[in-house]
């Protein structure tokens, strides 16, 4: 399996506060990684770093063999290619959904990729069907329930067909049925060979066999 993500002795500080300390991590294609740790240990910061929203204060970050640096992401094309390869599902779907309808929300990515309208419709409809949200097609995302918003935000990210899906606390604020649905989605998606990185402080919930657990401690370091 090829290495998709490689962090080499990465540290990140802001305003002299340490958020990540000497993190070394490798994620191979098809792996399912569960990132756990207490609140404030740096899980969300690590996700920001992996998405190129912040950059290491020291150490190196490689994605698909290429070092991710501010200079690389300043280049419009490199940044777009990089962001297409990583799908980031936010903890709070309200902060991710900004289009007037669910259909537009899911079609936003494919439209940017300059697909023709038939392909966009096919891709969007297949996701609406796969996530069982066809009935929400013309609804306003803002007025959906928490579980429905989560499904729409997952669909919006899947529409980009990224190489890796990162989900930040995917079970937060969901009821029992929606939590089970998200768990099953992760199992299903991982079984299909997709690479996933899930951040959650509820380690005991994801009981699938093929996962690898990585833990951040209160000192913002990885526990080996």
């Amino acid at each position: 399996m090829n290495t998709l993500v490689e962090l080499s002795s990465v540290s990140y500080k802001y305003d002299n506060i340490i958020a990540l300390e000497n993190i070394s991590l490798t994620i191979k294609e098809g792996e399912l990684i569960l990132l756990t740790g207490p609140n404030g240990c740096g899980k969300s910061t690590l996700f920001k770093l992996l998405n190129g929203l912040v950059f290491p204060s020291s150490g190196k970050y490689f994605f698909a063999g290429q070092e991710i640096t501010p200079k690389l992401l300043k280049d419009n094309l490199s940044a777009k290619k990089f962001h297409q390869q990583i799908g980031y599902v936010f903890q709070n779907p309200d902060l991710q959904l900004f289009n007037p309808t669910v259909y537009d929300e899911i079609a936003f990515g494919p439209r940017q990729m300059q697909f023709d309208e038939d392909k966009i419709r096919e891709r969007t409809d297949s996701l609406l069907c796969f996530l069982h949200i066809e009935h929400l097609r013309d609804r306003v995302p803002y007025h959906l329930s928490g579980g429905e918003k989560k499904k729409v935000s997952i669909a919006a990210v899947l529409a980009l067909n990224p190489d890796i899906i990162m989900m930040d606390e995917p079970l937060n604020g969901l009821d029992k049925k929606a939590r089970k649905w998200v768990e099953n989605f992760i199992i299903d998606f991982s079984a299909a060979g997709k690479t996933m990185l899930i951040a959650s402080h509820e380690e005991e919930i994801f009981t699938m066999q093929n996962r690898r657990t990585v833990q951040l401690d209160e000192n913002h370091q990885l526990v080996l």
């Binding site: 929203l53 902060l95 439209r111």
Partner: peptide, 17 residues
């Protein structure tokens, strides 16, 4: 909220808008 929405827009702005 606005900053997070802008980040979401930026992450999904992967082509020509």
């Amino acid at each position: 909220t606005a900053a997070d929405l802008l980040i979401a827009l930026r992450l999904r702005s992967i082509g020509k808008n």
